[in-house]
Design a protein around this nucleic acid. Structure first.
Lengths: 123, 123
DNA sequence: TTTTATATTCTACATTTGTAGAGTAATATT
DNA sequence: AATATTACTCTACAAATGTAGAATATAAAA
């Protein structure tokens, strides 16, 4: 099952912290911070969904993500690509470079990465 | 207000058809097709949200999207990038080229696009 | 014109999501 | 030890979402 928007946000914090107690998580939020119970509810739901686990330390818990950000994102992206670009990553790529205003440096960096990729592919 | 998942799917069909009557829309769905009323509900919600409009033709309506797929997608993508890559498109690009398995040809095409972009930027 | 297929509106309802209070247990502070 | 703080569970509830039946109007087919 997928994460909802707010759950995803919480995930971001967990990915950043790697592992965190309730108070660490709360710290990550900007004013107006959500109620502790709200976070607790989200954490429980995320645990149920299989995205989060925790280690019990005395009375409280240290939460940590069960999925790597990269993996989660990969799926996400694949869904997007499938939906919007007939499952064609290259079509997406082309759209992407046109629509996102990358600076010259960024574009050159990107080209470098691509060249590297081509090289790797042929190895 | 954003579109939900199913609404987004319906949008895809509208984008593809450009304009469509109820029956054209239903045709787009695979078995098991949703009930007509389900589509009707979605269309109404989407109309309320400002994504869809229609022309009345006698008894029924020809629906059409009010937003271009590209624009809608652009926002979408920007959200993603913001969330997952600290608002850095280039960071995203790099992730993208690494994670998506583009073929050699696709990569070369992409490089071509990038070169073109660089050229355009400096014009 | 009687029957049938279609489109639309209204109503409904279960599930998911966003948010948090009340209650309780454990821990830290005075 | 008495009190305040913190984390957690349970319960709740409004809004959004997914899905569709009932009723109605209308147009198409027989």
């Amino acid at each position: 099952m997928k994460l909802s928007k707010t759950e995803e946000q919480l995930m971001q914090h967990l990915w950043k912290l790697e592992k965190a107690f309730m108070k660490d998580i709360l710290e990550q939020y900007n004013e107006p911070k959500p109620a502790t119970t709200t976070i607790a509810t989200l954490l429980k739901r995320m645990t149920d969904k299989g995205y989060v686990s925790y280690a019990t330390f005395g009375k409280s818990r240290e939460y940590y993500p069960l999925i790597k950000k990269e993996d989660y994102f990969s799926n996400h992206l694949n869904g997007l690509i499938k939906n919007f670009f007939n499952d064609s990553a290259s079509q997406f790529a082309s759209f992407f470079t046109k629509e996102t205003n990358l600076s010259d440096t960024e574009l050159k960096d990107l080209r470098k990465i691509i060249d590297q990729q081509i090289k790797d592919n042929n190895k």
